[in-house]
């Protein structure tokens, strides 16, 4: 187990948003957290990425409490792509990706030959080598998102945490991104934790799903075990027909209507 959340209570101010959540993530898995709006998915992600301190419980990275580790130590193992990020518009792609090396640099902040090679590798992996001098504001939404992922890759992490990486992208970019994530998982054994809104995509690209509802873990398991008519009715309050996608050996569904 590489990352684990144990009896997490999370709150913003006094309002408790997430209650008693347990999550276990094994090395090399793609784990997707799904759930309706406002269920606390992003909040859980924030705690897993050491951004939000829990009221109760703990997050363990390789069995060590993530909040007792130094920010830099965590950043050498865990890379995070949050929903909320500022894009400094006149930064070049290469500059942004270079910041992925920050957790590995010494006090003087100088890149070694190795750092340059890693940056180049990250750009290549995300197919951005030809754009490396471009300014971020001259990139399309999909390219911009790939640049952020390249920055995460330059961290050479073991775990990559993504909060709704496909939001605001059109469908071709969504698939491109998810394929990239899957490829990274398969070729490097990178552990992926992400939040997705599209349940069909979550089912197709993940090894394991966690469904969160009203701040609690509703259920978890392999997509083929989890995704069925009752589950969708219970978690999302929709009626749906669930089929089996034999080509990708995963379930998929067609929504019919909302139920109350």
């Amino acid at each position: 187990m590489i990352l684990q959340a144990k009896n997490l209570d999370l709150s913003y101010g006094k309002k408790i948003v997430v209650k008693d959540v347990n999550i276990e993530i094994n090395r090399g898995e793609i784990v997707t957290i799904i759930g309706p709006n406002g269920s606390g998915k992003s909040t859980v992600i924030k705690a897993l990425s050491r951004y939000l301190k829990p009221q109760k419980g703990q997050v363990l990275l390789e069995n060590k409490n993530i909040f007792s580790l130094k920010t830099k130590e965590v950043a050498q193992k865990v890379a995070v792509l949050p929903q909320m990020k500022n894009v400094p518009e006149d930064f070049s792609v290469e500059t942004l990706v270079g910041y992925g090396r920050y957790p590995h640099l010494g006090f003087r902040q100088r890149f070694s030959q190795e750092d340059y090679q890693i940056i180049k590798w990250a750009l290549k992996k995300t197919d951005l080598l030809q754009f490396k001098e471009r300014q971020l504001n001259n990139l399309s939404g999909g390219e911009k998102q790939r640049a952020w992922i390249a920055m995460c890759l330059a961290q050479k992490p073991e775990v990559l945490i993504l909060d709704e990486p496909t939001t605001f992208l059109d469908i071709s970019y969504q698939l491109e991104l998810l394929d990239l994530i899957k490829e990274l998982n398969e070729s490097m054994g990178l552990t992926i934790i992400m939040v997705l809104h599209d349940i069909n995509q979550a089912a197709r690209y993940s090894h394991k799903l966690y469904a969160i509802k009203d701040g609690c873990v509703h259920s978890s398991g392999r997509p083929q075990d989890l995704l069925n008519e009752d589950f969708l009715k219970d978690v999302y309050k929709i009626e749906a027909d669930v089929f089996q996608d034999n080509k990708h050996s995963c379930p998929y569904f067609i929504p019919l209507k909302k139920v109350n």
């Binding site: 400094p88 910041y99 945490i161």
Partner: peptide
């Protein structure tokens, strides 16, 4: 300048 969450993620 990249945002608090990204900055934390970068250590």
């Amino acid at each position: 300048a990249l945002g608090d969450e990204i900055a934390t993620g970068l250590g």
